[in-house]
């Protein structure tokens, strides 16, 4: 009897250990307007968590506070706590550069640096001068293969990255993020400026990559979330409406607002 009672409790403990990021009572203001309102949620390890919601709901602000790239936004103030691997990242003394090598980020618009394709992949790697030529080549190859770009660019690694198509540029941006070996990858609507075929390529890549990385994916495209998400977080007007496994939230959401959104993409909040 005692063993049976213990089992569910153990599984609860295991579950909390699997949560790589926990957000507690997060509130964000920009000047006088409140962008996020008491967000509490947790992100499981090695799964794809999609943050969905109408535009202007605070999805981007939420994901951008996880690697504190929001810090530079003028007039922003943050309350609450974000815990990554058991450590609070809101501590003033935290090494931001170190944090961002553990939590990588890919932005909405592909942004390659005016350098060669190879240099772009290696851009975030520290102490690049100490690495041998062969090693640099291997790093470039490994990460470009991971984003299925290797075949397309292997013969022209020294060409300017700007010569690639937008879809290829975005995959290069992901390769660049993978090269710094993060644990978590944040993607802020990474496919919204791409054509549907490039978008599908990136979706397939995410499903492949989740074995090694925890992926947090912001999208306003509900179909996309349905295709790739293990977990969904639904945000509307700065408030967390519901979070949970994607299968449950899509089939029988507990909240009527979630139901309206996942069926009609309509939200009244």
């Amino acid at each position: 009897m005692a063993e049976k009672a213990l089992k569910p409790m153990l599984s609860v403990v295991e579950k909390t250990q699997d949560k790589i990021i926990q957000i507690k009572d997060l509130q964000i203001w920009i000047n006088e307007s409140r962008i996020l309102n008491n967000i509490t949620l947790s992100i499981p390890k090695n799964e794809i968590t999609c943050i969905i919601g109408p535009s202007g709901s605070g999805k981007s602000t939420l994901i951008r506070s996880i690697n504190r790239i929001n810090d530079e936004v003028p007039g922003i103030s943050t309350q609450g706590e974000i815990i990554f691997n058991g450590l609070s990242i809101n501590n003033k003394n935290i090494d931001l550069a170190q944090l961002r090598t553990q939590i990588g980020m890919v932005f909405q618009k592909p942004c390659v640096f005016p350098k060669s394709i190879k240099e772009n992949v290696l851009f975030g790697i520290p102490h690049l001068k100490k690495i041998s030529k062969l090693e640099k080549f291997q790093i470039a190859e490994e990460n470009l293969k991971a984003v299925s770009l290797w075949k397309e660019v292997a013969h022209r690694l020294h060409d300017k990255a700007i010569s690639l198509s937008l879809g290829q540029q975005q995959r290069l941006c992901i390769a660049r993020t993978l090269a710094i070996k993060p644990e978590v990858i944040l993607l802020d609507e990474p496919t919204s400026s791409l054509d549907p075929i490039s978008a599908r390529a990136i979706e397939d890549m995410m499903v492949r990559l989740k074995k090694k990385y925890t992926i947090i994916f912001v999208t306003h495209n509900l179909q996309q979330a349905k295709r790739i998400a293990d977990n969904l977080v639904f945000i509307c007007d700065g408030k967390l409406i519901e979070q949970g496994p994607a299968s449950k939230m899509l089939s029988c959401p507990s909240n009527p607002e979630t139901k309206a959104y996942v069926t009609d993409e309509y939200c009244e909040c």
Binding site: A97, M105, F107, K109, F113, P114, F123, G124, T177
Partner: peptide, 24 residues
Amino acid sequence: VYRESSSALGLNKWQVIVQVLLPQ
């Protein structure tokens, strides 16, 4: 987005300035 993309790769502010902003 150039500043954010390079900070997001773990570059410090002076590295962002020296490696991204000054060359451009």
